[in-house]
Amino acid sequence: MANSTLKSAALLDQMKLHLSSDAGKGLVKKIGLVYQLNIAPKKIGFEEEIYVVDLKKGEVTKGPYKGKPDATFSFKDEDFIKIASGKMNPQMAFMRGAMKIKGSISAAQKFTPDIFPKPSKL
C-alpha cells in the first residue's frame, strides 16, 4: 500500500497495525465482519483502489475479497477519510450519495468511525 498516494491508504496502513493491538483484536471479536472498500481518488467508480478490511481475521489487504464480503462500500478518498475521522456521519454520507453500499445493511451499520484508528499528529 505504500506506493498508493491515497490518503485512505495511509489510514489503512495504520489500520493494519492497529488490528494487531489489543484494541484491534477487540474489534475482531466485536464486529467479526468483512468489509470491502472501493476507494476512488476523484469520482466513485473511477480508478478505484480496492481494500479489504477483514474484521474476521484481523487483516487489511489490497485487492478484492476472495468470496463475498459482508458489505462493500464505495467512496471517494476524501470522503472515506471524513467518515473515518468522524467529520462525516456514515448515514449522512450514504444519503448524500457520498458512500454507496452493497451487501448486508446490518453489517453496514457497524461500519462506524470508531473502527478506525485516529492518526496522531507530528
Binding site: Q14, L17, H18, S21, G24, P117, P119, S120, K121, L122
Partner: peptide, 17 residues
C-alpha cells in the same frame, strides 16, 4: 518529543507514545 510520540502511537506503541 511530540513527533516521536505521534510516530510511536501510529505504530501502535501506545505506552511509549
Amino acid at each position: 518529543w511530540n513527533k516521536l510520540g505521534a510516530t510511536q502511537a501510529n505504530s501502535v506503541q501506545s505506552a511509549d507514545a
